[in-house]
């Protein structure tokens, strides 16, 4: 675990303070860190350990839970909810890929063609997020409803017949389908992709493009050999910021999906909040989800080789 969030600050030749001040200086960072770190340890790390403990308990809400080291909760959790794990992984990977494919051209266009409208355009990317994401996701129900214009156009073009044959949609509807779930996720997480991409693209000196064409690179080769490598921190940051919330998301699956598009998050909520004896298995599933996400993220960071760029 050596994920540094940021490059270390530049060393500056600060004149050495007198010994007494230096001793106080050694304590200062810990006084500043203590309350915040304590909060994180008590309300973030300890809960994860409690969950690992809870995942091997047996019992129900009425009679209480006992620690029985019943590792079977993991077996049940994995085998009963395998389709949901599959959906979560598939939808979040698809969402990340689509966000990258849509977000990169947009970030590129704003960064290099935006001119004096750059900050206005970036504001337009962020501003919709200030309306509750639930209201905005439900608005898609209106836009994609069966008597709406989009569905009738898609039906006239027989697009929905094709997508239904491929299993992406159901019948002549767009809503209540796997495609709608991924669509909603892309909509919700796209700003998280565009922001870091824009930040890293904006730093690139446009003269490098001219240098590329001076050296007989066509525009695509310039992008591939100059712009893309320089924007990799944004690509890595954006994919992480999209994938991590997407893998645990169940809002879109619930609002835009159908009973066959269940994801892990829905099951965890169900086990915790609606079933009286679901809490040990629910804990087991969330521990697996947490560990799985963390392993994927760390592998990805290692593979992308940008450990100190995030």
């Amino acid at each position: 675990m050596s994920v540094s969030l940021q490059a270390p600050p530049a060393k500056s030749p600060v004149p050495q303070p007198p010994p007494a001040a230096r001793r106080a200086g050694l304590l200062t960072p810990w006084i500043l860190l203590l309350p915040g770190l304590l909060w994180l340890v008590v309300f973030f790390l300890v809960p994860i350990l409690t969950s690992v403990g809870a995942s091997v308990q047996t019992g129900n809400a009425d009679q209480g839970y006992r620690l029985t080291w019943d590792w079977g909760n993991y077996g049940h959790g994995l085998s009963d909810y395998l389709p949901q794990y599959g959906h979560s992984l598939l939808y979040s990977v698809l969402c990340t890929v689509f966000c990258l494919l849509l977000g990169y051209p947009v970030a590129y266009c704003i960064a290099f063609r935006g001119g004096r409208f750059k900050s206005l355009l970036m504001a337009l990317v962020v501003v919709p997020s200030f309306t509750s994401f639930l209201i905005r996701t439900i608005a898609w129900k209106t836009i994609l409803s069966d008597n709406g214009p989009i569905v009738s156009v898609l039906n006239d073009l027989h697009v929905l017949n094709a997508t239904t044959a491929m299993g992406w949609t159901v019948g002549n509807h767009v809503l209540a389908s796997p495609a709608a779930v991924v669509f909603g996720m892309v909509y919700n997480f796209l700003p998280f992709m565009i922001l870091p991409l824009y930040t890293s693209l904006e730093k690139i000196d446009p003269r490098l493009h001219e240098a590329g064409s001076d050296l007989y690179c066509d525009t695509f080769a310039t992008w591939r050999r100059v712009t893309l490598p320089l924007s990799m921190p944004g690509v890595v940051g954006g994919t992480l910021l999209t994938f991590i919330p997407a893998v645990g998301d169940y809002i879109n699956a619930q609002l835009l999906g159908n009973p066959n598009t269940g994801v892990v998050g829905q099951k965890i909520e169900d086990l915790f909040l609606r079933q009286t004896d679901g809490y040990p298995v629910g804990s087991a599933i969330s521990v697996v989800l947490m560990a799985g996400t963390l392993i994927l993220v760390l592998l990805y960071i290692r593979k992308a080789g940008t450990e100190d760029l995030i």
Binding site: P47, S51, I244
Partner: peptide, 21 residues
């Protein structure tokens, strides 16, 4: 790492583990 972890944990996991606590 401790500061990075809450951002790398899916929300549902944070909610579930905290409720367990």
């Amino acid at each position: 790492s401790l500061l990075f972890l809450p951002m790398a944990a899916p929300e549902v996991v944070m909610g579930a583990t905290l409720t367990a606590l």
